[in-house]
Design a protein around this nucleic acid. Structure first.
Lengths: 233, 233
DNA sequence: CACCCGCAGATCGTATATCATTTCAGATAT
DNA sequence: ATATCTGAAATGATATACGATCTGCGGGTG
């Protein structure tokens, strides 16, 4: 009868709590506790946690347990690099599939982003940003690449409350770039140009975040300088 | 005492049999049978299979069971597209890390590939091809991208015995391209050029395979034509 | 002959129980 | 005071048992 298995329900349960920030990075996921809370046994909970581990949202150590992934600066860099790569490709692959309606929606979302700049609401801005890019990559005909994009975004979401996700000085520039990417798509530009534009859009944000980071805590930088150059280029 | 958990052992066991071809695509993985064969209970076997599912090597249906993934033509296209994307990036990111020794080894492997062309041993050629590319991407400093490359190759391995993996007329060209990629790396070319060269190298193989396919069974083509253009470019 | 129903076997899904490992507090010795 | 040892508690890992769901076959019915 149950449309979804208990392990799936456990997965959704934990996932929701990670997404909405109730389980913050470092939060310890104890099988027994979660099982009791959901009124199921530990077996499906275990399976759910291992799935989350495979998605990179949770770290797991044998005979020790699981916790919501602690994403350090290097980790963050790697995740963003990967997202830049796959999201750029997904955007380019989507481009030819987009209808005028898609583009209209994207413009509209971006306009809302521009207006939201006045309110200085980073959370809202981040939400709209995801919505904007979703419109651009959701039509990607390659499900593997699309899946990788989703994974990247999910990992980003884990960082919701950390200082990683938003840089004030970058927001306006970001919105402008959105429009430029839409221009490229509308004029039927070379897919490779679209891909690289979308990629640069993200690596520019990455660079801004890193610069912001090193300004506010200059010591913690364990990021090798030239590493990101290849993917940024 | 046991260095690895039983679920890990089950994972390795199944994985090895998929890799060496004893479990061919479509082969049904029955929890109870594998558990008996390994003398463990079904729980760790289940976990191993779900992990393989997450990696795309196995498909799983609730209350029905698992089987080694059946990769159809569209699936193959998507996998190769993704591999082209991530392997290109991994190669570019590795490039600056490579020592003269790496390059020497790569040249050497490629020379062996060239010699092996006379023997017409597709299996050997494919093995050497993996070894060659491994040298180029294993130094990739981004573990996520490197992991994606490995996943792509693993999925390729599932196809070992199918007609997907080798195109006679393409082999020589492929070996020549290998040398050209090495030239780019040696001369310290722009990482983006290296990335796109490595990507093109793979998409060219993809196109050759698809052409070969449609020659030998002209009807089965469910591949939309222009889809791959973005990533090929 | 085609279609539907229902039973039986196979297989997965989960609960419960037990074993193994880790962790940490507290005792003890130096 | 510090370091090391020890044992109990917490927690994960696995085995076993049972229940749920699917599949395929065989017989009945239109």
């Amino acid at each position: 009868m149950s449309a979804e298995s208990k392990s799936q329900r456990a997965y959704g349960f934990i996932r929701a709590r990670i997404d909405d920030g109730r389980y913050v990075p470092g939060y310890r996921l104890v099988l027994g506790s979660i099982a009791r809370e959901l009124d199921v046994s530990v077996v499906p909970v275990r399976e759910a946690i291992r799935r989350l581990e495979a998605e990179g949202l949770v770290t797991f150590e044998r005979n020790v347990g699981a916790q919501v992934a602690l994403i350090k600066e290097t980790e963050y860099l790697h995740t963003m690099q990967t997202l830049a790569l796959v999201e750029g490709a997904a955007t380019a692959l989507s481009a030819s599939q987009l209808t005028p309606d898609h583009l209209r929606r994207a413009r509209e979302v971006n306009a809302r982003m521009r207006r939201s700049l006045d309110d200085f609401d980073p959370h809202r801005f981040t939400e709209l940003n995801l919505e904007f890019h979703s419109v651009l990559f959701e039509e990607c005909p390659n499900p593997h690449i699309l899946d990788l994009v989703h994974r990247g975004w999910n990992r980003m979401k884990v960082l919701r409350d950390s200082s990683f996700s938003f840089v004030p000085g970058r927001a306006l520039e970001s919105v402008d770039e959105h429009d430029r990417i839409l221009d490229l798509i509308e004029t039927g530009a070379d897919p490779l140009d679209i891909e690289l534009a979308a990629r640069r859009h993200r690596t520019a944000t990455l660079d801004a975040v890193l610069a912001y980071q090193s300004e506010h805590k200059p010591h913690a930088t364990d990021v090798p300088g030239p590493e990101s150059s290849a993917i940024s280029a």
